[in-house]
């Protein structure tokens, strides 16, 4: 179950808990089904309730960046908790075009 919110052409997805390889596929499927039905101008991933993330989360971010890009939208990641900032920086996703 993923909480989402859509207004002003922005689809916000509130991620929570631990994001690892085990959970990534389900999260990916539910975000992509919303992207494809809503076709937002922007996708925003809110990480404020995420307690753990490994590189599976980076794969998830890059995959959604491509998915929303295919329909002409962009991706913003926001409310990154302190303990996730290291892996986000290491991944370089923001230099590839993901907004923060």
């Amino acid at each position: 179950m993923i909480k989402t919110d859509y207004k002003n052409n922005i689809l916000t997805v509130y991620l929570s808990g631990e994001i690892d390889h085990n959970r990534a596929a389900d999260i990916r499927a539910s975000i992509d089904s919303r992207i494809n039905s809503i076709r937002p101008k922007r996708l925003e991933l809110d990480f404020s309730k995420v307690s753990f993330m490994d590189s599976s989360g980076i794969g998830l971010i890059m995959g959604r960046y491509r998915a929303v890009g295919l329909i002409g939208g962009d991706l913003k990641i926001k409310n990154i908790p302190e303990n996730l900032s290291r892996i986000i920086e290491l991944s370089g996703v923001t230099s590839l075009g993901v907004l923060r």
Partner: peptide, 15 residues
């Protein structure tokens, strides 16, 4: 195809 980022070892080495 599984959206692996290819960063596993980079993360291990960095952390």
């Amino acid at each position: 195809e599984e959206e692996r980022a290819g960063l596993g070892f980079a993360v291990m080495q960095s952390f």
